[in-house]
């Protein structure tokens, strides 16, 4: 049934909204092993290349009066730095490189995925799950290292009436463990949904009568996706900051 829903034509319309997410090897036609150079690898490395181009080559002049590229790099730096400082606090500045890595990686993956015929790594749950659970495990470990057992006070809401506290603790615990799931699925789902919608609109373009409308729709959705690409990177980063704040200062 899946194939039927997937690649099938009704009245000349062909929808393959999910085909853009297929992982394929770029050299040869073999299986996808762990170390195969696939399109995932290509677009991830392109993201790395873009980060290097922006953050290293762009700032290589160390100009006091910045060039355009350098001022973009400085803008990104200042943006994330201020976010870490405001949301998490001044003592979290030492985790800034990790958070900045996450932000710049997600932002570039999202933006590169908007190039037509490109592959979007951040639409894959495997990838965002590594990011989300990585943040979750790191933050939880950090919470226990910094605060010891008092980190569990995060779940014991001392401002609530005593009778409610156990129930609240269960709810807090569940919501704590749902965090990495929602953290990763939010990113993957947003990007996946946007790209699938683009593909569906593109499918409608096969009908001549609807084609102009479809192209208009693609343009509008594309603009929205540019916004979403940035906002999702921002949201992922700011939520990381919020979780980090909970780990560093559990009593609030």
């Amino acid at each position: 049934m899946a194939t039927e829903a997937n690649g099938h034509s009704e009245g000349g319309l062909v929808f393959h909204p999910m085909d853009q997410f297929i992982v394929k090897p770029l050299f040869g036609d073999g299986a996808v092993g762990m170390f195969t150079f696939t399109n995932v690898a290509l677009w991830l490395l392109l993201a790395v290349a873009c980060v290097v181009a922006l953050m290293v080559l762009g700032t290589s002049k160390r100009a006091t009066v910045p060039t355009r590229v350098q001022s973009i790099a400085e803008l990104a730096y200042g943006f994330v730095y201020k976010m870490v400082e405001d949301v998490t606090g001044k003592d979290a500045v030492k985790y800034f490189p990790y958070i900045f890595t996450l932000f710049i990686f997600i932002a570039f993956s999202n933006f590169l995925a908007l190039i037509p015929t490109s592959f979007s790594p951040t639409s894959h749950i495997a990838i965002t799950a590594i990011l989300g659970f990585g943040v979750f495990i790191a933050v939880t470990a950090l919470g226990f290292i910094k605060n010891g057992a008092s980190f569990l006070g995060l779940f014991w809401v001392s401002s609530a009436p005593l009778a409610l506290r156990p129930i609240l603790a269960v709810i807090e615990l569940i919501s704590y463990f749902v965090r990495p799931v929602s953290h990763s699925i939010r990113l993957a789902g947003n990007i996946m949904a946007g790209h699938a919608v683009l593909k569906v609109f593109a499918g409608f373009a096969a009908i001549t009568a609807v084609a102009p409308l479809s192209i208009l729709g693609i343009t509008a959705i594309y603009a929205l996706e540019v916004l979403v690409a940035f906002i999702q990177a921002y949201v992922f980063t700011i939520l990381t900051c919020v979780y980090l704040k909970d780990a560093l200062h559990p009593s609030h």
């Binding site: 405001d86 789902g189 906002i231 949201v235 700011i238 939520l239």
Partner: peptide, 18 residues
């Protein structure tokens, strides 16, 4: 920042439905 966090949380549930 709070606005975006709120939007993100609200939207995440829509994404779950999707």
């Amino acid at each position: 920042a709070t606005l975006f966090i709120g939007i993100a949380f609200a939207e995440a549930l829509g994404i779950f439905a999707f």
